[in-house]
Amino acid sequence: MRIGIVGVGAMGSTHAAAWAELGVPIAGFVATTPEHAQPLAERYGASVYPDLASLLSACDVVDICTPTHLHRPMVVQAARAGKDIICEKPLARTLDEGRDMIRTCREAGVRLLVGHVVRFFPEYVRAREAVKAGQVGQVAVVRLQRDVFRPRKAQDNWFLDVEKSGGMILDLMIHDFDYARWVAGEVETVFCQHIGDPSISPGDHALAILRHRHGAITHVEGSWAYPPPTFRTRFEIAGADGLLIHDTATTAPLAVFRHQAAGDEAGEVPVPASPLLESPYTTQLKAFYRHLMYGDPIPVTAADALAALQIALAAITSTQTGAPVSLTPLPEVEA
């Protein structure tokens, strides 16, 4: 299996490192500015292709790590070329785009795998296993929280362009909307409040309340309003028989105290890091690889990605209307 990577930003380079670690040959990279792909190409002994079409002719599976608004055209092009596809989250910028991508991939007979990487983070996986094993009983109140700094890419900071990224709610909170669904089931209603005006706030910040079909309720906080290098995640799952708590603030195994200030060593885009022998991104791509090669099961489907997209878009609508939004069940998800 030869992989072709589209996009060489934070996710493109993270995925490239993971593929290399897994020993999967990287055929090449495509980037808007080809020179930006050169360092990665040299590092992994790959080529730089001028466009997606030429990359598709050189790879078996395409890994799309581009800004959100480009997912649909690229996935459709790859599907029509008969390639299996890995696509970064969020699946798409709009629900129609997402549905179109799923339909096109189904019609083309190719697989579409979406990088909802939180489903591969061991603390989140372990918590869900405990929930599924009944260790907290029926899930009642879930709290999910993801606090980071505003992405500060030096060039083309598309994260801050709502038309391209959907903003913090679609780019960041979607992780926890997906996880909420994974542990507490389908979501019926969403209410969300948000502050995003850069003249008022140091970064987007939002709070949402979800109601799940089976009665559980979930509180979600997403934030770009923290100073760098913050990357804090926290969750609580309270059920009829118990309570699970996770907080990166209390599970950091290292504390380093330097006499000279280390300065801000965080990258342009917040990426979580707790010492692990295998990065969750590698775990994710390994699962995708084994699924594509051997048909092994994977914990996240394109329909899951569509459902998470629907929740995030409903949250955005709620911030605009000031009212709760009821979700219409998606046939792709209910099937």
């Binding site: 109140v141 309340i209 309720i217 059920g239 009829a240 000031g322």
Partner: peptide, 27 residues
């Protein structure tokens, strides 16, 4: 000036009649 709330009675649902879970969002 505005309150949105969701409540449920899953925790201790078999022993009490009142809501045991609650999330509010105030404006």
């Amino acid at each position: 000036v505005a309150v949105y709330a969701q409540t449920n009675r899953i925790m201790h649902g078999d022993t009490v009649e009142v809501e045991t879970g609650g999330l509010l969002l105030l404006t």
